[in-house]
Write a protein that binds this DNA or RNA. Structure first.
Lengths: 340, 340
DNA sequence: TTTTAGCACTCACTCATTTGCAGTGCTAGT
DNA sequence: ACTAGCACTGCAAATGAGTGAGTGCTAAAA
C-alpha cells in the first residue's frame, strides 16, 4: 500500500515535472518535505517499484510513468475549480449570443489551445435523433436535381440527384410532396427504413416511372446521417512542447495528426470527461488525450484536447468540463424550442 | 551575357541538385562536359557573379540561387510533356464520371502530393457569376428561419435568420415569393445591390413590418459569396524533403501552414500556371509555390503545389497544367448544361 | 584566347576523449 | 525511522584531430 507521504511525493513530482519538463531529483524536494534527500530517495525507490515512477537513465531523477499520471489523475489531483482567468476567457464567448453553438465551441477550443499550447479537436455531426422537417427538391436541369433536407434544429444538407432517364417534372413534384407528407417528424436515422418499407409500396401507385425515381431519392436521402465535421485547432501548438524536440518526434506526431484514421480514434462515447494517457491514447505514446462527448441543440460529437503526457491535467480537465457544461446548457437555451 | 555552355551548366546543376539535394561540385560535372574541373569552376564562378549560383560555405559546391531557379524555369527547362505514368494516374480519376468535379480535383491533388511528396492545396468557391436559381425559406420556430439559396449550377448554401420580433408567417412567405420573383437569374455577387435598390423599395409596400424582415434577409443573403473551401493534402509530405531536417525548420513550416493568413497567400488571380520561388512565395523562403487559377462548372479557385525550392519544376508544372486543362474541359462537359 | 594541371587552403563532418554535473544506491551511524 | 557520506553512473557539453570534398588562383599547354 502506498503511504501518505509517498502520495504527497508522487503528487509533487508530477506537478514539478509538468512545470519544468525535467526529471526531478531528490535534493530539490528536501525543503518541501523537511527531510534529507536520502529519505526522499527511499520513497522514490518504493514508488518506482510500484510502477508509478521511472528513470530516464540509471542516475537520473525520476519522471512519472503512465501509471503514475493515471494515479495522479484518479487519486491525487485536487479538483480545484477552473481558474478565474481561464474562465473569464471562455465566458466572453458564451455570453456572445450572436455566435452559433458550433462556432462558440470552435472559438472556445481555439482559446484553450492558445492558453495551454496543446492541440484541440472538435468532431461533430447532426444528432441522429434530429427530426426531418422538410424535404425540398430543386431541378437544375433535365437530369439533375438537388435534394435539400432540413431538420427540426435548422440543419440543412443537400445532395445531388442524377436521374438516369428523363422524368416529367410532375412526377418529381408528386414524389416530393409524398415524401414531405410521410417523412416530416421522422428521426433522420430512421429515414432509410421508412423509405424502404412505407414509402416504396405507395410510390409505385402514384408515380409512373417509380423505379428510377425511387432509387435516385433513396440514394440521396439515405446517406444524410454520416456527415461529420472535424476541426483541429493549434496543430502546431503542441510542437512547442519540449517533448517534441527532435525532428523525428515532430514528423511523427504531425503525420499521426494527418492520418486518415485520426478521426475515428478521437471519437468518444462516454459522457464523462475521460483521460487517455500515452499508449492508451491510441494516437501516440507521447501524448495524452482528454476528451468527452457532448450533445446539444441537435448536434453531438466529441471535443478533445491533445497534449503531452506531461500535461496540466487539472487545468485541462476542468476547462473541458466547464466547456461541456456550457455547451449543453447553452444548447438548450439557444434552440428556441419554446414548445408552447 | 550568359554563354551556351554556361546555360547547360546551370541546367545541369539545377537538375543534379534537385535530384540529390547536395551542393554539386566541379569534378562531378567533368564527364558530362568533357572538360576538366578547372574549366567548370571558371564557369561556375561566372554564374555565381551573375547571381544564379550560391555556395553554402566558402569551399562547398554550388547550389542554385532563387534567381538561378527562376532562370531555369523561364529559359532552361524543357517543357517536356507529363510522363506517361503520372498522366495515367491522373487520367483514371477523370475517367471516373461518378466523381463530382470537386472531388476529382481533390483526388488528383492527393495523387500529386503522393507521387511528388509535396503539399497541395485546393482553394475553391462558387463562381461569383453563378446565377441564383431559387430562394427557399423554412421556419424552424417563431424567431428562427433557415434561408436556402440554390444556384443554377446546383450549389446550395444556407443561413440562419434570427428575427428580432415575431413576424406573421404570411409576411415571410410574401417576402420569399417576392425574392424569388425578382432574384432568379441574378448573379450572386449582384444580389446585395439588387436587394438594396430594387427590392427594398418594393417590399415596404407589401410587408407590414418591412424593416425587420428586410434586415434579416439582407444579412442572410448578402454574405453568400464569401464561403471558401480550403483543402490541404499532404501537409506532412513536405516534411520528408531533406530541407526540413532540423526541428526549427519543421516547426516553422508547420506553423506557417497553420496560420490564419495562409489561405489569402495562396490565392492566385492569374490564369497561367505561375511559379513563386522562395521569398516570392509569401509563405516561407525555403519553399516554392506552383499555382494557377481554375474556373469550371460554376466553381472557381486556386490549385497550388507547395514544395521545396529544390523542386521538380517541369514535372509539377506539367502536372498542374494537365490538371487545370482537365478540370476546365471536364467542367464544361459535366455541367449537363445542354442548352438546346 | 581558352583550357588544364597543380597546389594551397577552407570548411563541414565524424569520431574519440575529456570533464563536470546531477543524480542514484547502499551502508553505517544517529 | 531518518540521515550523512561515499562510490558510482551516465548524460551533456566541450575539445581536438583527421578526413574529404570542394574551392581559387597561377602558370603552363593547346
Amino acid at each position: 500500500m502506498i503511504g501518505t507521504r509517498q502520495k504527497d511525493l508522487l503528487r509533487e513530482i508530477v506537478e514539478e515535472y509538468v512545470k519544468t519538463a525535467r526529471p526531478v531529483g531528490s535534493k530539490a524536494l528536501c525543503k518541501k518535505f523537511k527531510c534529507s534527500s536520502a529519505t526522499i530517495r527511499n520513497d522514490m525507490a518504493t514508488l518506482e517499484n510500484l510502477g508509478y515512477l521511472e528513470k530516464t537513465h540509471i542516475s537520473s531523477g525520476r519522471i512519472p510513468s503512465e501509471e503514475g499520471y493515471r494515479y495522479y489523475v484518479d487519486n491525487l489531483m485536487e479538483p480545484k475549480k477552473i481558474s478565474g482567468e481561464d474562465m473569464l476567457k471562455l465566458q466572453t464567448i458564451f455570453n456572445n449570443k450572436e455566435l452559433e453553438l458550433n462556432d462558440a465551441i470552435s472559438k472556445s477550443l481555439e482559446i484553450i489551445s492558445d492558453i495551454t499550447n496543446y492541440t484541440s479537436v472538435i468532431l461533430g455531426k447532426e444528432s441522429s435523433d434530429n427530426k426531418l422537417q422538410k424535404v425540398e427538391v430543386v431541378p437544375i436541369n433535365s437530369r439533375q436535381l438537388i435534394a435539400i433536407v432540413i431538420t427540426d434544429t435548422g440543419h440543412v444538407e443537400n445532395k445531388n440527384i442524377i436521374l438516369e432517364e428523363n422524368i416529367p417534372a410532375i412526377e418529381i413534384s408528386k414524389t416530393t410532396e409524398l415524401l414531405n407528407k410521410m417523412l416530416i417528424g421522422t428521426p433522420i436515422d430512421e429515414v432509410p427504413s421508412k423509405l424502404e418499407f412505407e414509402i416504396k409500396p405507395i410510390i409505385r401507385n402514384y408515380v409512373e416511372n417509380y423505379e428510377v425515381v425511387y432509387n435516385a431519392f433513396y440514394n440521396a436521402l439515405s446517406n444524410f446521417t454520416s456527415e461529420r465535421d472535424v476541426k483541429f485547432t493549434g496543430k502546431a501548438n503542441i510542437l512547442k512542447q519540449p517533448e517534441f524536440s527532435t525532428v523525428d518526434d515532430v514528423k511523427n506526431i504531425i503525420s499521426k495528426f494527418e492520418s486518415k484514421d485520426m478521426v475515428s480514434k478521437i471519437e468518444e462515447d462516454d459522457d464523462e470527461v475521460k483521460v487517455y494517457i500515452g499508449s492508451k491514447s491510441e494516437i501516440d505514446d507521447n501524448v495524452t488525450v482528454v476528451k468527452t462527448k457532448y450533445k446539444a441543440h441537435g448536434r453531438e460529437g466529441t471535443i478533445a484536447i491533445i497534449g503531452p503526457k506531461r500535461m496540466e491535467y487539472e487545468r485541462v480537465i476542468n476547462m473541458l468540463e466547464y466547456l461541456k457544461e456550457h455547451i449543453e446548457a447553452d444548447g438548450k437555451e439557444n434552440t428556441h424550442e419554446e414548445k408552447e
